[in-house]
Nucleic acid binder design. Structure first.
Lengths: 156, 156
DNA sequence: TTCGCTATAATTAGCCG
DNA sequence: GCGGCTAATTATAGCGA
């Protein structure tokens, strides 16, 4: 048994990498829920598993269920009751994307990345709030914040 | 020295709680950067310290500096070059908030919480993306996603 | 406050089922 | 794919500077 010291390097073997992800994800979530309780900061964790593309939502233990249940049983808009939440929001995002593509074709990814960081750094976070994002910077900037940034833009 | 087993309960003493937060925050960030390297998921961490209200931005080690540097040296819009990025984005957010307040006074916090979760769950995340949010659910929903959700709303 | 220290608790790599 | 196991690594509580 090679209980080797952690070699902090990319794990080439797919299965080993997945196993590592699974275990460490669990560990991180535990740590997060601990700091939550110990320091009195209500928290939630949302983890997107890169290997099976499932999303786990996970506020602090007690609240998680409550909030998630509300999520599953309520609609944001009455007139879209027959749509899934997913469909509804996808549609909204699509619309935003369309407007956006027309408005600002000249946008490049670097700007989006900047916008993402700007946005994150400047939003007014409440004092007892802890935020940790673990995200693919490039794709986040490219695929997600592009939309957000553009939504901001159309408010100008 | 009482290296007692962790009693997973709110730490009443302020100084002890701060110390705990500081240490564990550091630990979480380390874990995050590790999973980042080991599993090949580029990541960033943004931690808002609830005790001193500082924000630490922290993409994966190498990229962090690059991206942050771009952030500090570039402007999103030319005509706002004389504004700080903070001022600019705060302004945009304020505008959004104003429109929003007029449009949807009937919004309640529960809806915002739902919207937050919906939004997070439904956005299309790239497959190799890991997301972990540690956030105050109530205040996040109330103060931040209110803006986002409303930005989506005005696209309807 | 933030650091270092050190004993102890907690996480986890590599295997097996 | 998941969870248990065990040795070894790593994180951290309590304290002092």
């Amino acid at each position: 048994m090679t209980r080797s010291k952690v070699t902090l390097a990319y794990i080439g073997d797919v299965n080993a990498r997945k196993a590592c992800f699974r275990k460490r994800q669990k560990g991180i979530m535990k740590k997060v829920s601990e700091i939550t309780v110990l320091c009195g900061i209500q928290a939630c964790v949302i983890i997107k598993n890169p290997f099976n593309s499932e999303i786990e939502v996970w506020p602090n233990p007690e609240k998680a269920k409550q909030v998630i249940e509300r999520y599953h049983t309520a609609s944001i808009k009455n007139e879209t009751k027959n749509m899934t939440q997913e469909g509804l929001l996808e549609l909204k995002i699509s619309k935003a994307q369309d407007k956006l593509d027309k408005q600002r074709k000249e946008n490049n990814e670097k700007k989006m990345t900047q916008a993402m960081l700007d946005y994150m750094k400047t939003r007014k976070l409440p004092n007892d709030l802890t935020v940790a994002y673990l995200e693919d910077m490039d794709k986040f900037a490219e695929q997600y914040m592009k939309k957000i940034e553009n939504k901001i833009a159309i408010l100008d």
